[in-house]
Each structure stands twice: as structure tokens, then as C-alpha cells.
Design a protein around this nucleic acid. Structure first.
Lengths: 206, 206
DNA sequence: GTTTGTGAAACGATTCACAGCT
DNA sequence: AGCTGTGAATCGTTTCACAAAC
């Protein structure tokens, strides 16, 4: 079960969303074709994706909606809650902290940090913004699973090094920089400028 | 020159960022290896990526930094400015409007829309928030190249249809939904929940 | 000697197609 | 009859390796 493509994991995440809609509508079983059409892919792709993790369907019938949703939650690690620290209390950090989707999906923001003394001490969503210089002290007894980096590019790498030393095993990075981390740490970078530039490319190349 | 992989375009965008740093530091030429190490890829990959668009280097020497940067800007469509409309004046929309990277890279936000009467009429960064019901009237004489969708999922598709009818040719979508558009319209979806779930998957699978 | 540009090889992901179960 | 599960075929991307240019 090791060595599943990232593209597969992303699709599983989409399938889960669709399954939850089907579940909500009281649909009992769903075919790979139905799942595929909702997700812009093919039925063969859906079956192949699921086959990496087991066989959950019944031939001639399809997949039982609640069971498959449950298995996907299990596979994606959504049956437990994750402890998230947000580093950077700027506009994007603020939007993220407010975003209810985090909580809903099992991601609990347990701490917010910033370097600006004007922001430190303020409350956001009931959480006090801490001084990032106290990162090590404040997180000493508090395991953090995921750090969300929402800082300027120039401090992102040193902060990453500190977070890794604190035992953080996954980083969602919004700084426009390619972070270097040890192999055992997972990083996902969201780079808005880059997304816009792929659109710009698409606009000039047609 | 048609049919270049999206992964290639994304890397070109990264290379451009590095080239601009080299340019700033007064470096005159750069090898594919140097570019690769900054971007977490290989020298062969860099050369292959560039080879889709021409040959810009000198054997034995490397690539002339300012020339290559210029060519990449050209390829990526960053030599002109793009007109961007933001649909949705929520937290994320606000963060985007404030984000200086847009302006810097040639993306001018020319209009903001929202459905909430409490927000319509307010000023954001010198731009008045317009009523989204007036989208067609307000954009009638104003060509929009790119729309940034920052709305709830349930209104994203109908809004997309209206935007496409208005001639928008590219959409940066933050709504957690798979948009359907005609072939000639480019869509990039940024789905934060999905990014978090890939991290969650990485955390449980090691 | 160094580094590009590029066919060819290797690798990885998607699609096909069908046997096997319900 | 319908739909899954999966090897095999196909397609696309990355890496290799080397001749050509400087």
C-alpha cells in the first residue's frame, strides 16, 4: 500500500466530498462511473485509485456509500483530529483562522504566532497571538502536527528549521519559496503568484 | 510549441523567480545545474523544459540571466498587464486584494463584487465593492481577462457561467467545487481542504 | 574542460478491455 | 445484465547519456 501517487490521494479527497453529498442525499450505493462524472475523471481511474487500498465494491452493484466514505476517511487520516499552528498573523493567516472548513475536517488551530509586537497579545477567534520568538517555549509541551506558514519569504526557511526541530511533521507553506526539509517532513506549498502565471500562460497560448 | 505540460509551465515560473534573484545579485550567466538546485529539480529537467521554447543557452557557459528572464516573461505572458475581477469580498478575497504580488506581477484588480448589501459600496484598496447582481452591467464595457472566484460553493457554478458569458477566459477558483467551463476557458482551482488532506494522508502513512 | 540541446531509455500514470462476481 | 478489480497496453513525463558548441 506504500507508494501511492499524490494525484491519487488528491482524487480520493474529492471522491470523499462527493460521497458525503451522496450520503447526505440518502443514496445507498454508487458506481465508479457516478463518482467519476462528479469528479471529472473516468470510472477506470476511480476503480484503480480505490484498488490501491483494497476492494470496497460489489460487482454488479457499485460501492456502499457510507462504508466507502468511512474507509476513505480512514485512509486519508481524517478519523482523528490534527493539531495545527499558524505562523504569521497577516491577512491570509487571518482568513485561514476564520475558515470553518479546517475545524470541520478535523484540523484544530491550537496556536497562532507573529513577529509583530503590535499583533502579539491580540485575540483571534478566541486564540491569543503569541510572539514567534517564544515559539520553542510556547510549544514545548504541546505537540503540533501541522504548521501553516504564512510569513514573508525571507523568514520562511529559518522558521521551518525551528518548526522541524520542534517535531512538526507537515507544513502547509504559503510563502513563495521552495522550503528544504528532512525527508520525513511533508510539505505542500501553495503559491498564488505561480497559479496566476499558469493562467497567464494559458491566456497567451491559444 | 503547443502541448507543453502544466508541470513544465509551473517550473518555468519558478525558474523566472530564481533568475530575478540572480539578476538582482548581478549574476550574468547561470547554468542549468544552478537553476535546478534552487528549484529542487535536475539540470536535465531544466534544459528539457527550456528546449520546448527554443535554445537560450551557450554550450560551455550557461544561460544569460537577463535574456532568459526576458524570454520566460514573454513565454508566460508577463510582458503585458492582465485585468482581474475579484468575485467575493470575504476574508480570502480581502487578503488577495491587499496582496502586492498581484500588482507586481502584472495583475491589476479592476473590480470587486459581492452579494452582501452590507459590503456593497464599501471601499477596498481604493476600489468600491460592487453588487454582484450588476455584474453584467458593470463589466459591459470593461474587458476582464481573469476572474478570481472567492465565493461559497453553491454560487460558484452559476457565477462561472455568467463570467464566461461576459468573455472571461481564465478563472482562479477558490470555491471547493469542480467548475465546468468551455474548453477555451482556463481554470485553476485552489482547494485548501484538499491540500490539508494530502498532508493528513502523509502523516498517517509513514 | 564545461555545459547545452536532444534523441533514446526508463519510469510512472492513465486508459483499455475483459474475466469474474453479484 | 451490470459493475468491479486488475493485468496489459498506452500515453506522457522524467532521466540518461552523449555529440556538438564554446
Amino acid at each position: 500500500m506504500r507508494k501511492v501517487a499524490e494525484s491519487t490521494v488528491r482524487r480520493l479527497s474529492l471522491y470523499l466530498r462527493f460521497l458525503e453529498e451522496f450520503e447526505h442525499d440518502g443514496v445507498a450505493t454508487v458506481s465508479s462511473g457516478a463518482l467519476a462524472s462528479r469528479g471529472g475523471t473516468t470510472s477506470a481511474q476511480v476503480r484503480k485509485d480505490l484498488s490501491f487500498f483494497g476492494s470496497f465494491g460489489k460487482r454488479g452493484l457499485g460501492y456502499p456509500v457510507p462504508e466507502l466514505a468511512g474507509r476513505l476517511r480512514q485512509i486519508l487520516g481524517l478519523e482523528r483530529r490534527w493539531r495545527v499552528a499558524v505562523i504569521g498573523a497577516g491577512k491570509i493567516g487571518g482568513a485561514l483562522v476564520q475558515y470553518r472548513g479546517f475545524q470541520q475536517r478535523g484540523f484544530d488551530i491550537i496556536a497562532i504566532f507573529d513577529a509583530d509586537p503590535g499583533k502579539v497579545g491580540r485575540q483571534w477567534n478566541g486564540l491569543r497571538i503569541h510572539d514567534v520568538s517564544q515559539l520553542e517555549r510556547d510549544l514545548a509541551g504541546t505537540p503540533v502536527d501541522i504548521a501553516v506558514l504564512v510569513t514573508p519569504a525571507d523568514v520562511a526557511q529559518p522558521l521551518t528549521d525551528r518548526l522541524v526541530k520542534l517535531g512538526v511533521k507537515a507544513i502547509l507553506n504559503f510563502a513563495p519559496i521552495q522550503l528544504s526539509v528532512p525527508d520525513e517532513v511533508a510539505v505542500k506549498t501553495v503559491n498564488l503568484a505561480l497559479e496566476l502565471e499558469t493562467l497567464s500562460y494559458a491566456l497567451v497560448n491559444r
